[in-house]
């Protein structure tokens, strides 16, 4: 027997290879988060023809542009409501939202909590790079306290969202958080999220070397080492203990996996449509 002579990357069939290399900077983790998402799509065994990816605006929002599936690069913050329309109009579709923290949690924050409340049948992969990368590194709703950005030149006076807590409190029925370094756990979580019938949320902490890293004097490799050293894996941790604070240590894991609550589509059909008697 011989070594496989495969010369193309195993994810190439899922990529618009004519658009590679992508726009993400050297050392940026979005590519890794994106690759794990594609691997999870493969691993989950879902019908990829019936799978659509929706993104908003920002660096991570470019994700939809690289996947060779039905893919929609929408307006800033609106990926979730767009995905909601897509899913409700054709409930057979698997709808994956791949976007960034600014897009999903700040300008799209209202849509995020309401989709979670409805237990809308979509999977949201949120790449959190702690700042607005596309516009040059401004403070975000996820920037750690005292971190420097172009709009917090002496340090962020505010505190960041605990995104898993926000998702859980709003009604999300699958919630996990990993970093790109934890690529295997991350892939496993996204796989579970894809197979989960309600609102599933996976936060992916990711380095932004060119903006966040540079202003806070963290080299890309050092950021990954921080991800290794300043994180604690604690599955089923209480969502209130998941503050985004590198000094205290950041808790990773799978926190919520509630399969009892019916999803939005299920509840709508049961409640609003005429039932056969």
């Amino acid at each position: 027997m011989k070594t496989s002579q495969a010369q193309s990357h195993p994810l190439d069939p899922l990529l618009r290879t004519d658009r590679i290399p992508h726009i993400w900077c050297p050392g940026c983790g979005i590519g890794t988060a994106f690759a794990t998402c594609l691997n999870a799509m493969k691993d989950s065994g879902i019908d990829l023809v019936q799978t659509a990816m929706v993104s908003g605006i920002g660096c991570s929002g470019r994700g939809a542009g690289y996947v060779k599936l039905d893919s929609y690069h929408t307006t800033h913050g609106r990926a979730i409501p767009f995905a909601t329309g897509l899913k409700l109009a054709n409930p057979k579709l698997n709808v994956v939202v791949f976007s960034g923290d600014g897009d999903l949690l700040a300008i799209g924050g209202n849509h995020f909590i309401h989709a979670a409340r409805r237990n809308m049948d979509i999977t949201v992969v949120c790449v959190n790079n702690f700042n607005y990368g596309m516009t040059g590194g401004q403070v975000a709703a996820t920037t750690p306290h005292l971190a420097k950005t172009t709009t917090t030149p002496v340090g962020n006076p505010e505190n960041p969202f605990n995104a898993p807590l926000l998702a859980y409190a709003s009604g999300a029925t699958y919630v996990a958080r990993w970093t790109i370094l934890h690529a295997r756990d991350l892939t496993e979580s996204i796989t579970e999220a894809l197979l989960h019938p309600g609102f599933s949320f996976v936060e992916v902490l990711s380095p932004c070397p060119v903006n966040y890293g540079r202003r806070n004097r963290i080299k890309p490799m050092d950021m990954l080492k921080i991800f290794r050293e300043k994180t604690i894996i604690r599955n089923d941790a209480r969502p209130t203990e998941l503050d985004l604070d590198f000094d205290k240590g950041i808790v990773l894991g799978k926190f919520v996996h509630d399969t009892d609550r019916p999803s939005c589509v299920e509840l709508y059909d049961k409640t609003c449509r005429p039932q056969e008697r």
């Binding site: 329309g85 897509l86 579709l93 849509h111 309401h114 709508y268």
Partner: peptide, 27 residues
């Protein structure tokens, strides 16, 4: 819902219009 369609009241008009465009993309 009685004729096989779907109604949803969204969280604001921004979301409503986004959902309308999304639904159209799904046919």
């Amino acid at each position: 819902p009685r004729v096989g369609g779907t109604f949803i009241q969204m969280e604001d008009e921004i979301a409503a219009m986004a959902a309308v465009v999304g639904a159209s993309c799904a046919g």
